[in-house]
Design a protein around this nucleic acid. Structure first.
Length: 356
DNA sequence: AAGCTCGCCAACCGCCCCGTC
DNA sequence: TGACGGGGCGGTTGGCGAGCT
């Protein structure tokens, strides 16, 4: 008999999280930050175990999460890192800002693994499958039709990635000699590649769980602007830098705005000590209440608690908030109107929550 | 339209590590 | 030094939605 789970022992709630629970957890962490997870449920008024809260926060509520499809670069990076690290999803996730280990693990299991097998590559060893294995795989008749990474669309023994002087990726023909052939995913190349695409100044203590190194970010080369946002429901649109111009601002949620603002801040203050001071962000909810629905945010600290904006439903407002946040670079304090996270949590049409 | 299948992914489970007492 | 608790991690499960019959 295995030991009982913490939830079973305490007869706590399990399963999917309700918007109400999300709200409670989010507000609790917004107020007190991430501390002792075991005490979070009690303090936040949740019938959950601490582990469950931690997981919910890390995988879903964290404001710096990126959502949506994995990009080609991310996909290639995961493949390369997996070749080096194996199923160490947490370590792999550390190289992909805004992605969680769970997300990457799911992506691997549901998608990448199959793609590799379809290409005759053993997903565990990243080496070619034997002929019989390939045949067996093909007989499974994978018909997902998803496009493969460019690198995968070629025979593993015929190409090798080459990093060129100008930093672009090219796949050169590799030696036909099996002893000399280079694996399709050169892990070191990919790590180098990641060096180019990582963000700088991305060091809040929360983000630090995913991203601990400061690296060079060259967005002339790769369009990999950070997409950091609080997207708490799957149906929410992500902040897409490329698409932002065409995006209806009316449809942008608070999370979208927060990510927009995050980006704005990072870009406008890469040399600013405010951005780089990644101590504990303090959301002063007391002050927020006093201010009649706006919260103050100690800009001496980090940006990890950038959420809860008043209804931001126009481009005009968007510009306004960008401006407000840019002012953070010079002000010690700034206040923002408050909105319930519920708009993110339950969507515009839901009436479970209302703007505070 | 109803039933079925399948894939995705959020969340749980259980193990391990580490810090504290 | 061992017990204990908390946190982190990887494997697994099961609910749900989309697509198909």
């Amino acid at each position: 008999m295995g030991r009982q789970s913490c939830c079973a022992k305490q007869k706590l709630r399990k399963g999917l999280w309700s918007p109400e629970e999300d709200e409670k957890l989010f507000n609790h962490i917004a107020r007190y930050g991430v501390g002792c997870w075991s005490s979070v449920p009690k303090l936040a008024g949740l019938q959950r175990c601490g582990k469950s809260c931690r997981l919910r926060w890390i995988n879903y509520l964290r404001p710096d999460l990126k959502r949506g499809m994995f990009s080609q670069q991310e996909e290639d990076l995961i493949l390369g890192l997996h070749q080096v690290l194996g199923n160490r999803w947490a370590q792999i996730a550390a190289h992909l800002p805004g992605r969680t280990d769970n997300e990457i693990k799911n992506f691997w299991n549901s998608c990448l693994k199959k793609k590799l097998m379809k290409q005759g590559i053993d997903p565990n060893t990243h080496k070619p499958l034997s002929e019989s294995e390939v045949k067996a795989t093909n007989e499974k008749n994978y018909t997902d039709g998803a496009s493969l990474p460019q690198s995968l669309q070629m025979h593993p023994h015929e190409i090798a990635p080459v990093s060129t002087d100008n930093g672009t990726v090219q796949f050169a023909e590799a030696s036909k000699d099996p002893m000399d052939s280079k694996l399709i995913y050169d892990p070191f190349f990919l790590l180098e590649f990641q060096e180019r695409v990582n963000l700088h100044g991305y060091r809040s203590s929360l983000m630090g769980q995913c991203q601990k190194t400061q690296t060079i970010y060259d967005h002339n080369q790769f369009d990999v602007k950070p997409k950091i946002g609080f997207s708490s429901m799957p149906n929410l649109t992500n902040y897409d830098v490329q698409g932002i111009a065409e995006t209806e601002f009316s449809a942008i949620s608070a999370s979208t705005m927060s990510s927009l603002i995050f980006n704005e801040l990072k870009e406008s203050s890469s040399n600013n000590s405010i951005v780089n001071s990644s101590a504990n962000a303090t959301l002063e909810l007391d002050k927020m209440v006093e201010d009649g629905g706006s919260f103050s945010w100690d800009a001496e600290n980090s940006f990890e608690s950038l959420f809860q904006f008043n209804e931001i439903k126009s481009e005009e407002n968007a510009s306004h908030w960008q401006g407000q946040l840019q002012a953070l670079c010079t002000d010690d304090y700034i206040s923002y109107p408050l909105m319930s996270v519920s708009q993110d949590l339950v969507g515009e049409n839901a009436d479970t929550f209302h703007p505070i």
